[in-house]
Computed example of a mutant assay.
Amino acid sequence: MMKKIVFLGCGSMGEAILAGLLASGVSPQSVVVTVRRPERATELASRHGVTAMATNEEAGANVQAVEGASVVILAVKPIGIMDMCLEVAQALDSNTVVVSVAAAVSLAQMESALSPGQPAVRSMPNTPLKVGRGVVALSAGSAVKEEHLNAVHEIFNGAGVVLDVPEEAQNAVSAISGSGPAYTFFLAEAMAAAGEAMGLTPEVAQVLARETVAGAGIMLTEPGADAQKLRRAVTSPNGTTEQAIKSFERDNLGEVIKTGAQAAAARAAQITEELNSK
Rank of each mutant, 00 (worst) to 15 (best):
M2P: 15
K4C: 03
V6E: 01
V6D: 00
L8N: 02
G9W: 05
G9T: 00
S12Y: 00
G14F: 08
I17G: 11
A23K: 15
S24R: 11
S24F: 01
V26I: 08
Q29M: 10
S30L: 10
V31I: 14
V31F: 07
V31C: 04
T34P: 01
R36H: 13
R36I: 05
P38I: 07
R40M: 06
A41N: 01
E43M: 10
S46D: 12
R47V: 07
V50A: 04
T51N: 01
M53F: 09
T55K: 05
V63R: 08
A65S: 03
A69L: 07
S70D: 14
I73L: 15
V76W: 12
K77G: 07
I79D: 15
I79Y: 07
G80V: 08
M82I: 15
D83A: 15
M84E: 10
L86G: 15
L86D: 05
V88L: 11
V88F: 05
Q90L: 13
A91M: 04
D93L: 13
V99K: 06
S100L: 09
A102R: 13
S106E: 11
L107T: 04
A108D: 14
M110W: 13
M110S: 08
M110D: 08
E111S: 15
A113T: 09
P116D: 10
G117W: 01
P119R: 03
P119L: 03
V121R: 04
R122F: 13
R122E: 05
R122P: 08
S123Y: 09
S123P: 07
P125L: 11
P125W: 04
N126R: 11
N126W: 11
S139I: 04
A140M: 06
G141L: 14
V144N: 11
L149N: 11
A151E: 14
E154R: 06
I155M: 13
I155W: 09
A159I: 10
G160S: 11
V165Q: 12
P166Q: 03
P166H: 02
A169P: 02
Q170R: 02
Q170W: 07
A172D: 01
A172K: 02
A175S: 12
S177Y: 05
G178S: 01
E189F: 05
A192Q: 04
A193M: 03
A193Y: 00
T201P: 00
P202W: 02
E203W: 03
V204F: 00
V204C: 00
Q206Y: 01
V207H: 01
V207L: 05
E211Q: 14
E211I: 06
T212R: 02
G215D: 01
A216E: 04
G217H: 09
G217I: 14
M219C: 12
M219L: 15
A225W: 13
D226L: 11
D226P: 06
A227Q: 09
Q228G: 14
V234S: 07
V234Y: 08
Q243W: 03
I245R: 02
I245V: 15
S247D: 06
F248A: 12
F248V: 09
E249N: 12
E249W: 12
E249K: 11
D251V: 00
D251P: 01
N252C: 13
L253Y: 13
V256R: 04
A261H: 07
Q262M: 14
A264L: 07
A266T: 13
A269H: 09
E273G: 04
